[in-house]
Every structure is written in structure tokens, then in C-alpha cells.
Amino acid sequence: MLKLFEIVGRRTINWFQLSVDFIRLFIETLYWIFVGPFKGKPIKSKAVFEQMVFMGSNSVIIVFFVIFFTGVVLAMQSAHQLSKMGGTIYVASLVTISICRELGPVLAALVIAGRIGAAITAEIGSMQVNEQLEALDTMAISPVRYLVVPKFISLFFMLPCLTVIGDAAGILGGYVIGVFTLDINPALYMQTALKYLTLKDIYTGLSKPFVFAMIITMVGAFMGIKTRGGAVGVGKATTISVVSSFILIIVADCIVTGVYYFINF
């Protein structure tokens, strides 16, 4: 029994320590973004643009296809149910609102967590086990400023852009099914799709990627920095990073949706 308390106590302390370290890393990142430039340590714009290409441009195709096919599936599934009530036309608005409010931001974030979050952890983790982070620190170069900040800024702006592209892809997926399979008039489809889409749906959906981007970068970087134990350690850290990002994205989605739902912005 005493051992059980000991184990629970130790794990609680470890979790608390990890949370403190995570928050510290987040604060340090914000420091280098907002305070660093005024102390003669500017943001590395070249690195930011390089990351934007890697995180943004190179992710367009995968985000597009994932959300396009989600739109297709959603349209088919909802058509099956709505047709029983003679409301097939509402497939258009159902797909559009679902994609814009929920599925577009979340799926884009999950795809990017898998692609970019894993890459961030693997890169920083490998640098950690190969003493490269220590080398930066010894050269009086902050690894957070040098490595994390460009990734943070880049994904903060790229994920909303990818979400917009994903939203368009999802709506297109629904359109393809609606027009070519359900024989809905194209103009009527678009009219119905946009008729029920409110401004709130759009800003609800577009505010989420900013939160998700912070989660993906910070979890990726944190797990990378915490990596120990060679190649096996990098593998473990990468797995934990992706799984943690997935969970946190869903939790954050729930919280943000809850905020909009209850506070009724």
C-alpha cells in the first residue's frame, strides 16, 4: 500500500515538474518573440520563411486530400440519412458547416501534428542526443530562439492557411458528391451551402488553428528537448509527441468549442 502511494506520489511530482518545464519553454518562446528583438536578438526571418515552405507549402497536398475525402464521406453519409426525410439538399449546408466549424481545423491540425509535430521532435531530439543543443548553448546561442521560435511563428501562420485550403477542399468534396451523385443543381448547392454558413461558423473554425499550431510546435519542441537515450529515445519521444499533440488538440478543440457555445460570442 505504501509503495502504491510512493509510486503515485512520484508520478504526480514528475507530471508537475514536466508541466512546469513545458510552461517555462512556452514563456521562453514568447520571450524570444516579443522581448528578444528589443534586446538585439531579432527573429531569424530566413529560418521562418524556410519553415513556412516546409510546414505550409509542402503540406498543402496531404491536407487537401485528407479533408477533400472527408467532405466526400460526410456528404455520402449525410445524404443517406437526409434522403429518408427528403432533405438531400441540406447535405450542402451540413457538409459546409461541419467542415468549416469542426472537421477542417481539427483534421488539418491532426495531419500537421503527424507530419510536422513528429518532424520537430525528431529533429530537435536528434540534436539533443548528438550534443548539438548543448553546443548551441555553449556558444551562448539559445536553442529556443534558434530552433523553436522560427517553427512556432511559421506554424502559427501556416496552420490557419492550411485550414482555409482544407475547408475549401472539404466543401469541394461535398460539392462533388452533391452535384455528380445526388444530382443537386450546382448553383443551388452553393447557394444552400452558403445560406446557412454564418460569420460565427467561420471565425469559430479559423480561431482554432492558432491554438492548435501552438500546441503542435510546443509539444514537438518540448519532447525533442526532453529526448534522452540515442535513437531509441528519439523514436519514443516522437511517438509521445504525436500522441500527446493528438490528445491535446482534441481537448483544446473541446474547450474552444465550449467557450464559443457557452459564452456565445
Binding site: Q132, T138, M139, A140
Partner: peptide, 16 residues
């Protein structure tokens, strides 16, 4: 202080 010294690492620690 750190700017006053340099360090050569066992693994070289060059940025790939």
C-alpha cells in the same frame, strides 16, 4: 562569460 570560451565536443556536435 560563454563568449569568452569555445568548446569542441566528443561527437563534434556540428549542425547537420
Amino acid at each position: 562569460i560563454k563568449r569568452r570560451f569555445g568548446m569542441s565536443f566528443q561527437s563534434s556536435a556540428l549542425l547537420d
